[in-house]
Nucleic acid binder design. Structure first.
Length: 656
DNA sequence: GTAGGGTTAG
């Protein structure tokens, strides 16, 4: 095989391992009834014990009543009550314990209980109360400070958290690894008015290094996560590589970093490395979710199935988050029905994420009506649609060309208290634009009361390419070149539009612009999984096997020409002979992957291909023809959606 | 006796 076998195919052979730490043995539930007599005329120690037991069993009303009559609760009793109140969402109980503590001469100034109080109020989203405890705490040790920092950072009160950290510095309180971890989270949460988050994180990173905390496992892991969230993958890699000790969380953070930042191949590869490096590192549900996301990213169905088996072996199928990720993986790998099956299997445990996933699944497969139907079912079940629900369902309308339904849904957003964001406008511009209603799309953009994002203009540009509208394309680009000057795709799209309008001079100008900015367009690349191994193709590859594949395609093309097919050479921007243009078209990665699939799979097998860009016109027609000529089903996932080719017809009905 | 990583879209 000349195609490059992926380095991560050995995922198929997940090492068998003991299933990690055993579940903690449950303490034998004590019979509460048998303890009851202790409350009448019992010693205070027994009463303390009883309150703790009641707390552990969630019988808070009874525990609270007992607290009233207790002359001197122990520290452990206060703690149990606060933990139970937080767990049960019982703010009133937390407040009652708080009042009781304030009147307790022994524990009034106990920093440990101040920490627990702050934790409890934070868990109950009662931040002002947490703040009050902190401000009034007579003894503020590092635990109390860190509890406050954590409460602020996790509640996304970034500015306040950073101010808290600054106070520590001012008062000479020595910060520790916990302070850095929470402080870094605060850097992400703080608003842009405090400067760019990336600068804040780097500054705190430097600070941690100076104090000798830069390589601390928790601090470094948090750093990886922060850099991941900011898209600074290189920084995350450097931190990860330099760590002397990595645990499962550090590895999972790095896997998640790649998965989030569109580097699914690297995510799977580093997962492999983790599995090979240390037998004690047993993936947990969070690791699995990230790797599933990565499998979906590279369309690695076979590998995803291995993870599915692993999930069943480890019992992770009890976690809705894992099932949601599994369902999304199947649908993104072309298996819509399995996704639906898992959704049904989740049953009543399904949440808004499960619904969104199914809605977008139908959408990317071109089933707009089904997607809307699922949306309606969701509403009937009383689930509140989220921002993402609308992005998903509007996207589905766009893929299926359901303009009127999409407009209705867009207008209905306010009824569900979801304010349209730029993303929703981008969906609408796409919907209208694809359908050829460019004037309406432009009117919509002009009516926006928020700043149109690059995605909005990008949708318009994409629609102009489909409908050959030079004027609006120039309008979109006047914004895009300003908003994202480094995005080569915009220049290439505009050049394509000019080329089709036979404006060669303008094409040349754009090419010069590209060179001036030292920009290169993303090279087209396609993957295919054959016998559970991934093979990738790029049109720039120059090896003998590729010529063989091209020759096979060439044969099909000759047949097609007899049936009236004309190669779409208009998309080739180089100023070269027609024949040469046709040769370039033959080398498109998607065609190579199809040919490879034809040669290397059995006649009844579905050929599944992934492409990193939008499927080009020419590849689309050729693939349609091949599906008919060879009687094979071919499923192609491009950057936006799925195309199911069968018997010369594509599921997108040539609308994409 | 504090803590670090995750689900859905484009």
């Amino acid at each position: 095989m000349s195609a490059t076998a992926s380095p991560y195919t050995s995922l198929l052979h997940l090492p068998h391992r003991p299933f990690g730490p055993r579940r903690p043995r449950l303490t034998r539930p004590r019979c509460l009834a048998s303890l009851a007599p202790a409350s009448s005329g019992a010693s205070p120690e027994n009463e303390d014990h009883l309150i703790q037991t009641l707390c552990a069993h969630g019988r808070l009303a009874r525990a609270a009543a007992l607290l009233q009559g207790l002359p001197a609760p122990t520290q452990r009793t206060y703690e149990s009550l606060l933990l139970a109140a937080a767990r049960a969402g019982d703010t009133a109980l937390a407040a009652a314990v708080h009042r009781r503590l304030e009147a307790d001469p022994v524990f009034r100034s106990d920093p440990f209980l101040s920490t627990r109080l702050i934790d409890a109020y934070a868990a109950l989203s009662a931040l002002p109360a947490a703040r009050q405890v902190f401000d009034e705490a007579p003894v503020k040790n590092i635990f109390v400070w860190n509890a406050m920092l954590k409460a602020l950072a996790l509640a996304d009160h970034g500015e306040e958290a950073l101010a808290c950290l600054a106070d520590m510095g001012r008062l000479g309180v020595p910060v520790d690894s916990y302070s850095y971890a929470h402080g870094l989270k605060a850097c992400i949460a703080a608003s842009a008015s405090h400067g760019p988050a990336s600068a804040r994180v780097r500054e705190m990173h430097a600070h941690a290094i100076r104090r000798g905390y830069g390589l601390h496992t928790h601090v470094a892991t948090t750093l990886i996560d922060c850099y991941a969230k900011l898209g600074m993958v290189g920084y995350a890699e450097r931190v990860f590589t330099s760590m002397p000790d990595r645990n499962l969380v550090s590895w999972s953070a790095m896997i998640g970093c790649y998965a989030k930042n569109e580097r699914p191949g690297d995510a799977i590869q580093i997962f492999q490395e983790m599995m090979a490096s240390d037998a004690d590192l047993v993936p947990n549900s969070i690791t699995i979710v990230s790797v599933l996301h990565a499998c979906a990213g590279v369309n690695a169905l076979g590998q995803g199935k291995v993870l599915h088996a692993y999930i069943l072996r480890r019992g992770f199928d009890s976690l809705v988050s894992v099932l949601n990720a599994l369902m999304a993986m199947y649908m993104k790998c072309g298996c819509l029905e399995i996704g639906r099956y898992i959704f049904n299997w989740i049953g009543r445990r399904r949440n808004v994420v499960s619904w969104n996933s199914l809605i977008s699944g139908y959408g990317m497969h071109g089933f707009g009506r089904e997607s809307i139907q699922v949306f309606e079912e969701m509403i009937q079940e009383g689930i509140s649609p989220s921002i993402i629900t609308f992005i998903s369902v509007l996207g589905a309308c766009s893929h299926a060309g359901l303009v009127e339904q999409g407009k209705k849904l867009f207008e209905s957003m306010v009824d569900y208290n979801v304010t349209p964001r730029a993303e929703h406008y981008a969906c609408m511009v796409d919907l209208l634009g694809r359908a050829g209603r460019l004037d309406e799309a432009v009117e919509l953009i002009q009516s926006m009361r928020i700043q149109p994002s690059p995605q909005v203009w990008g949708s318009l540009l994409g629609a102009c390419r489909i409908h050959g509208h030079v004027e609006y394309a120039e309008m979109a680009c006047s914004h895009l070149f300003d908003l994202e000057p480094q995005n080569a795709g915009n220049y290439v799209l505009l050049a394509d539009i000019y080329a089709r309008a036979k404006l060669q001079n303008q094409v040349d100008v754009l090419k010069e612009l590209l060179e001036e900015h030292a920009l290169e367009k993303v090279p087209g690349c396609s993957w295919i999984e054959v016998k559970k191994k991934l093979y990738s193709f790029a049109s720039v590859d120059k090896n003998p096997q590729v010529e063989e594949l091209q020759a096979l395609i060439g044969e099909f093309v000759t047949q097609m020409k007899n049936e009236g097919y004309v190669p779409d050479t208009g998309s080739v921007l180089y100023d070269i002979e027609e024949e040469e243009k046709e040769r370039i078209l033959l080398g498109h990665s998607e065609k190579l992957a199809v040919a490879f699939g034809l040669i290397n799979t059995g006649s009844g097998e579905v050929i599944r291909i992934t492409k990193n860009l939008r499927l080009c016109e020419d590849c689309h027609s050729v693939t349609k023809f091949i599906s008919k000529f060879t009687d094979r089903e071919i499923v192609v996932r491009d950057v936006n959606r799925f195309h199911h080719f069968r018997n010369g017809v594509c599921s997108c009905r040539d609308y994409w």
